[in-house]
Nucleic acid binder design. Structure first.
Lengths: 200, 200
DNA sequence: ACCTGAACACCGTTCAAGT
DNA sequence: ACCTGAACACCGTTCAAGT
């Protein structure tokens, strides 16, 4: 009998459950997926699942934060990027793709709806957003100092407006998978052009 | 025994149920509101409620379309408006207010999440959006012909981008009731200024 | 320490019975 | 024709019992 349990077990179990949940959510959506299904997929019992997550909502919250983190990798890269406009188009592409692996589109709105009721998740998302906005604002400032762009407004506000619009595009795609990602990216790009006014 | 039942009854019942549901949703949100609570508020039995709505989701859908209709009154007025920029700011104000009567903010994201799974609602919202976009595009065209604005892009695309951003602002407000509506309106207004480039 | 799975509580929906 | 409300089905969560 070991004095300490495997310290990596909890993290492994969480990952195992999250992977199963993501699979099910993509398949059938958040609401139509039952805990029992997640348990079957993760080969674990309901009792065990609840050792690692407080609730079903807690599971979406974890997935939400993961998905954001993935999309935000592109934001990290804004700082070092050569062309701000190019980097922004890449960011849009990454963000739209992160929530477009079929089924995931709806997940984005589930997350939003969940956050509107779960203030912990809302706070976590707000913090992520604050960071992303700050990074984008810095990148804009840097490009402005370098003479690459002549933004139409304060960098902070430009950053916020751009991220707001990007989120808007992503949510529209979640509802109406009408146009290819590239088209949404192009529209976003046109917006950045007119807000950031690059030197020609 | 009447040969015809009161033909206005169905519509009255629906209105009665919707009013009760709106009240409950504002109070506790869509998910936490039970059919039983709506029934109590509407002074009707569950069985009766299901004569008028197919499901709980059907009730949110109806509320969603109502709320949109309300916000879209402002879009109707774009056509006749003198100053396009002013009219757009009014539109933003109306839209943000329509989803800001406390509790309703979360409703906006509930609607979105519901629509992502309910293709009938999604189609209905898409149709509304198509109309709104068309009206806004016409208004932009008219202002352009009148020499009032020099839009940075095709009118259809400008309209779409503006509505997308507006929706984005509304959804952010749903999560983080951080800033006064007037501030969001001002940011939207700044965006319109830079996309529509009014003559000075 | 970790897990199982039956049991519980809750709630959306239906339906037999009433008027 | 319209309604009632008890019953049903389903599912998130808990907990006594196992290893």
């Amino acid at each position: 009998m070991p004095r300490l349990a495997d310290p990596a077990l909890p993290e492994r179990r969480r990952a195992q459950i999250l992977e199963a949940a993501r699979f099910c959510f993509r398949e059938r959506g958040f609401r139509q997926t039952t805990i029992e299904e997640i348990c079957a997929e993760a080969r674990i019992s309901p009792g065990a699942l609840y050792r690692y997550f407080h609730s079903k909502a807690d599971i979406v919250a974890a997935i939400a934060l993961d998905a954001r983190a993935e999309a935000e990798v592109a934001i990290e890269q804004l700082a070092g990027a050569e062309g701000l406009l190019e980097a922004l188009a890449d960011l849009a592409q990454a963000f739209l793709e992160a929530f477009d692996k079929d089924g995931d589109a709806a997940l984005l709105s589930d997350i939003w709806a969940e956050a509107a009721r779960d203030s912990l998740l809302a706070k976590a998302l707000a913090e992520r957003d604050r960071v992303a906005r700050g990074r984008l604002a810095s990148a804009i400032d840097k490009a402005r100092r370098g003479g690459g762009v002549y933004p139409a407004m304060e960098s902070e506000e430009a950053a916020e407006t751009l991220l707001t619009a990007l989120e808007g595009f992503a949510l529209r795609r979640a509802l109406w998978r009408a146009e290819p990602i590239a088209t949404s990216v192009r529209k976003f790009r046109t917006l950045t052009l007119h807000l950031l006014k690059p030197k020609r």
